[in-house]
């Protein structure tokens, strides 16, 4: 085509529309795009800040404090002190016929004795309401807990790093709150840290110092634990006054994450930073509602990949000194 476009006008037509209107429409289109994109950008930012500033109204739950991140309405916000001292770790197959091989202490010893400093552990597993209070301030984790899950159910389907993130968040809250019980505040000020329990802390809290097989004793009982069933229950539903330190749901309901890597016994926390070339696999304890009796013993050791989300896995927190 050798002629310019403006020269190619149909000769039958008397008047060609000017370019002004077209230019104006084009500029409007560009302006619309710029404004719309800017609006979208600000909206996504404000969504984030709205989430972070939101108090995230949740319904009150009996037995929990909705003005204290839904922690239990207990003297120490649901934390129970476990005194320092030794306990028996691992299983003795002569007494516990359901023991697995990985619970054996060493080739020549069935069980070991481990000294543990004093620490505090959650009376219950961390609940959906507690975790929601955390996610409401962290837009990246928004909707991590399904909306239809009751607030007093144990939180599940979270990965290991998220459980630790919750612990760090709660630590900040407890340290900065004037309402934190003095005993906890002092312990935190002395270097106490919220985290997942180590394997030893968890097992001592579950079986006490008398080497029992289950948290309540040596005989199986569905009265004290939710196992071999088809559904998760709200925390503390199977009240267990006989359990060591009065802790609830240490057996069954949901598996509980720990901060110990899955390594062969004998247990030695100094080994935790070794074998970095191996893939991470973390110990989980206590079994779940879906497990049989063998997996809800206090000494049972499961392994979980840190990226796994599962509706049978949750956690509880400890406050301990590293």
């Amino acid at each position: 085509m050798s002629k310019s476009q403006d020269q190619q006008i149909d000769p039958n037509v008397s008047q060609v529309p000017g370019r002004t209107l077209g230019l104006a429409i084009m500029c409007l289109a560009i302006l619309f795009v710029a404004v719309w994109m800017s609006f979208q950008s600000r909206q996504s930012e404000s969504l984030g800040s709205a989430a972070s500033s939101s108090s995230f109204e949740q319904e009150a739950i009996t037995g929990f404090l909705n003005d204290a991140w839904f922690l239990p309405d207990e003297p120490l916000l649901g934390f129970v002190q476990i005194p320092a001292g030794p306990f028996t770790m691992g299983s003795n197959p002569a007494l516990d016929r359901l023991a697995y091989e990985n619970e054996r202490w060493s080739s020549n010893r069935r069980q070991g004795t481990v000294e543990v400093d004093d620490f505090y552990i959650g009376l219950f597993e961390v609940t959906a309401a507690q975790f929601r209070a955390f996610t409401a301030e962290n837009p990246d984790l928004a909707n991590r807990v399904a909306a239809d899950i009751q607030g007093d159910m144990p939180v599940t389907n979270i990965v290991w790093p998220e459980a630790l993130a919750y612990a760090r968040w709660l630590q900040q809250k407890l340290e900065n709150s004037a309402d934190t019980p003095a005993e906890l505040r002092n312990y935190l000020a002395a270097g106490g840290q919220l985290s997942l329990p180590s394997e030893a802390e968890w097992e001592k809290a579950a079986r006490g110092t008398d080497g029992r097989i289950f948290p309540w004793g040596n005989s199986p009982s569905k009265e004290f634990a939710n196992y071999g069933s088809s559904t998760i229950l709200a925390v503390g539903s199977r009240s267990c006054t006989e359990c060591a330190f009065g802790l609830q749901d240490m057996s069954g309901n949901v598996w509980e994450l720990t901060r110990s890597p899955l390594q062969p016994y004998p247990y030695n926390p100094n080994d935790d930073a070794q074998n970095l070339s191996e893939d991470a696999l973390w110990v989980m304890r206590g079994g779940s509602f879906a497990d049989g009796l063998g997996n809800v013993r206090a000494a049972v050791r499961g392994g979980v990949d840190p990226s796994v989300r599962n509706n049978t896995i949750g956690f509880r927190l400890v406050i301990s000194k590293p």
């Binding site: 990965v159 290991w160 790093p161 630790l164 985290s195 901060r259 890597p261 935790d272 930073a273 074998n275 970095l276 070339s277 191996e278 893939d279 991470a280 696999l281 973390w282 990949d305 840190p306 990226s307 590293p322």
Partner: peptide, 14 residues
């Protein structure tokens, strides 16, 4: 850590 790198998990703990 979610990608199973053990050193990362340890860095999260401490």
């Amino acid at each position: 850590c979610e990608l199973k790198f053990r050193a990362s998990c340890l860095n999260l703990l401490d």
